[in-house]
């Protein structure tokens, strides 16, 4: 099968890939922050706080991301909130993946030996310092491998925003495929680009996992 159509449009697709990477990068930080906040709430919060977090996690894990994106896309104009769909998309994805990060961070926090907390407090460290130099560094190191794997899912999920007309790699592919009538080539090429991005991340995740094995 000749790949000239794909090669001819590769530049356009790659520009879409750049947007995809940007979307993913923009989502990673907020979702990590949300995830950490939720994890801390679940580990240290009172019954009321934990119940609220549990409801949130239940809803997010039970409702498809696409439905949440649709809701944002169609409901936002009616609410009078003047937010560009791009920002809305990143926000929804952050809220969505934040819920998955929460479980990762929660597991990491709980896996820290109690003596770490005891030792830090015994040295006279107060909460802020304790978290800053003892807890967070270790939690992030512990959570890194599953975190990176979640990032792979995140990158793949950015494809969904194409359905609400946000331009990125998948939408670019659809445009080209419709124009050139070469869906096999084009979507194959799009898949390949995603593969390169995600496989790279998965190798990084494996590398982190290896490093972890020597750390404890």
């Amino acid at each position: 099968m000749l790949l000239d159509v794909l090669i001819g449009n590769l530049g356009y697709l790659l520009r879409g890939a750049v947007v995809t990477v940007g979307l993913a990068a923009a989502t990673v930080v907020p979702s990590a922050v949300i995830g950490m906040v939720l994890a801390l709430a679940k580990v240290f919060g009172g019954m009321g706080v934990r119940a609220v977090v549990d409801v949130y996690l239940y809803v997010i894990r039970g409702v498809p991301l696409l439905v949440l994106l649709f809701f944002m896309y169609y409901a936002l104009p009616y609410s009078g909130i003047d937010m560009p769909p791009l920002v809305g998309g990143v926000l929804v994805m952050s809220l969505y993946f934040g819920a998955f990060m929460a479980e990762i961070f929660r597991a990491a926090i709980l896996s820290l030996p109690r003596a770490q907390w005891d030792a830090a407090r015994s040295l006279g460290m107060r909460r802020r310092l304790l978290f800053q130099i003892v807890i967070y560094p270790q939690v992030f190191r512990l959570a890194a491998p599953p975190f990176v794997n979640t990032c792979i899912l995140l990158v793949k999920s950015t494809s969904l925003v194409s359905i609400i007309s946000l331009w990125e790699l998948t939408l670019a592919g659809r445009e080209v495929a419709e124009r050139t009538f070469a869906p096999l080539q084009i979507f194959g090429g799009v898949a390949l680009i995603y593969f390169v991005l995600c496989y790279g991340l998965s190798r990084y995740g494996l590398y982190l996992e290896e490093r972890m094995r020597f750390a404890h």
């Binding site: 030996p113 003596a115 770490q116 005891d118 030792a119 830090a120 407090r121 015994s122 040295l123 006279g124 460290m125 107060r126 909460r127 130099i133 003892v134 560094p137 270790q138 190191r141 750390a215 404890h216």
Partner: peptide
């Protein structure tokens, strides 16, 4: 207060059975 307790602790040294050191 937390501040007083932390201050007191900083003058008392303790060594535990395991996992004392900060691994990172």
């Amino acid at each position: 207060t937390e501040r007083e307790i932390a201050a007191t602790r900083s003058n008392i040294g303790i060594v535990f059975q395991s996992y004392n050191l900060f691994p990172h």
